[in-house]
Simulated scan of single mutants.
Amino acid sequence: MRTKNAPIGIFDSGVGGLTVMKDITGRLPSYDYLYLGDSARTPYGNRSFESIYRFTLQCVKYLFTQQCHLVILACNTASAKALRTIQQRDLPDLAPHKRVLGVIRPTAEVIGLHSDTGHVGVLGTTGTIQSDSYKIEIKQQFPRLSVYQQACPMWVPLVENGEHNHPGADYFVKKYLDQLRQQSATIDTMLLACTHYPLLISKIRSMLDTGISLLSQGPIVAASLQDYLKRHPEIDEQCSQNGTRRFLTTDAPELFDHHAATFFGQKVQSEYVEV
């Protein structure tokens, strides 16, 4: 029997995770969802491991208090620097029957299926790239793949400031793509390993050869979550299905709502919370 109010929790350091939530809710619309954006402490990308872990754990604990039995870390940086520690060290004592999942492993499990040359590129924040999490996970799934990584520190600020569709963004989009391509001329698959980057996808595509596959995480994570719920009915049964969506932020709701409409594709009305 399903709990009446047990939404699937989705966490991000700000509004970027809404691009993942958009695909999840599109694929699994009947479930209830509770999104928490830690906007007061965003961005996570350049913070220390200790800070990212502490902030992420605080937010996961808060979502647990809101009856979430399953929490998705839609933030790449949190997935890279906090997920494994939370899963292995904290969950067994904190909430052994609850689950916290990330976005890195689902992506690593499929990226090799899109490459013919065996050379793939990962575009992400400085924190995500420095963690080597994608390279490690991809190599576990596809040992023969050559993985090249490129940090794109200016892409998130461009999106956050609404400059992603303007001509001024072209320089920084091309700069990081060129730096990635200089690492290998045979890269045929590129992964957008940050939830902000789908908003730049039109510009990115315009600067790539037609034969290069460009992967966005939202559809991949949504398909993986659907499969996970099928394989784990004991978790699925605890997730309520009333089709509700609720949005929480640790900063000013009006600022969150303003940016959220761009990332989620529709207007939202968020609530302020302290975690």
Rank of each mutant, 00 (worst) to 15 (best):
G265L: 04
I52Y: 08
Y148R: 08
A223Q: 13
L28D: 05
K230Y: 10
R205L: 06
I138P: 14
E163F: 13
G127R: 04
Y228D: 06
L200W: 05
L191K: 00
I8K: 06
K175C: 03
A82I: 10
Y272L: 15
S131A: 10
R89W: 05
D251K: 08
R54A: 15
I138K: 11
I201R: 14
T126R: 13
G16S: 08
P92Q: 00
Q241K: 12
R54G: 11
G16R: 08
A6C: 10
M154A: 13
P219M: 01
H166P: 04
I201N: 09
H259L: 15
Y171E: 11
R246G: 12
H232Q: 10
Q58D: 15
G37W: 02
N165W: 00
Q217L: 09
F172Q: 01
L229D: 00
T77K: 03
E163D: 14
G265K: 02
G112I: 04
T250S: 11
P153M: 04
W155V: 03
N161D: 07
F55L: 07
D251A: 12
R205F: 03
I212F: 11
G102S: 03
F264G: 05
L57S: 12
E234S: 05
G9E: 08
H258G: 03
R47A: 10
P92L: 02
S206P: 12
I8R: 05
N165I: 02
V122W: 00
L191I: 09
Q238A: 09
P253N: 09
G37N: 03
S39Y: 04
D170H: 01
D116R: 14
N5F: 11
L215E: 05
Q183N: 11
D90A: 15
D12Q: 04
A260W: 00
T244V: 13
V268S: 06
S51N: 11
L177T: 06
N5E: 12
R205N: 14
T3M: 13
R89H: 15
L36P: 03
T195I: 09
A185R: 10
Q58A: 14
Y134K: 00
D209L: 13
H69K: 12
G168T: 14
D38S: 01
K98L: 07
